[in-house]
């Protein structure tokens, strides 16, 4: 087996990805070759050296702090107005319309309003007789009435 092939098999062995056939090949190589065993030990040692806790980078923030920051970014607190100002505005407008319509309806059908309406009609009639043209007609009527009852005209007719 070529050294490159051997190294590939050793890498796949370490990651647990060997097929049964590859496993058999590697087992044979390890049994036969001291170099293969040496290479495997070297690889293991490198892995141990770079994953040792004392050289593994550690987070500057505490775990709780990091979790809290992640959670805060996923669920940011929303300002009150931003929460529902549109539905609130719509509800307020609907309420104003409803109250206005109710007052209008009540005012239109109340007895006091009917009285006021009747009074308004009378006043309207009264003021109609104050028209100057109407006054002239009245005078004319009076004149005709006096003529009709005058004796002179009555005799002439006869």
């Amino acid at each position: 087996m070529k050294p490159a092939q051997l190294e590939q098999l050793l890498l796949l062995e370490q990651s647990g990805e060997l097929t049964p056939r590859q496993q058999a090949h590697l087992a044979a190589a390890l049994a036969d070759s001291a170099h293969a065993r040496e290479l495997r030990d070297q690889l293991r040692h490198i892995t141990r050296a770079v994953t040792a806790p004392e050289i593994t980078p550690t987070m500057p923030a505490s775990l709780a702090d990091a979790t809290a920051r992640i959670d805060a970014r996923l669920h940011p607190p929303r300002p009150l107005l931003a929460v529902a100002w549109k539905p609130l505005l719509a509800a307020a407008a609907a309420l104003v319309l409803l109250v206005g319509a109710t007052f209008f309806h009540i005012a239109r059908h109340s007895p006091a309003t009917a009285q006021r309406a009747a009074l308004a009609d009378d006043t309207e009639l009264d003021t109609a007789w104050l028209d100057p043209m109407d006054a002239e007609f009245t005078e004319l009527e009076d004149l005709l009435a006096s003529i009709a009852t005058d004796d002179f005209f009555l005799t002439m007719e006869m």
Binding site: T56, P57, T58, M59, P60, A61, L63, A64, A66, T67, I70, D71
Partner: peptide, 28 residues
């Protein structure tokens, strides 16, 4: 539950990110 997940993958993930970040704050 988020805390448990973060704790579970903290070491390998932070360690990997640290290899490419300019400093620990950037990795954080």
């Amino acid at each position: 539950a988020l805390g448990r997940l973060v704790a579970k993958y903290q070491r390998p993930l932070f360690s990997f990110l640290s290899r490419f970040a300019a400093n620990p704050d950037e990795a954080n």
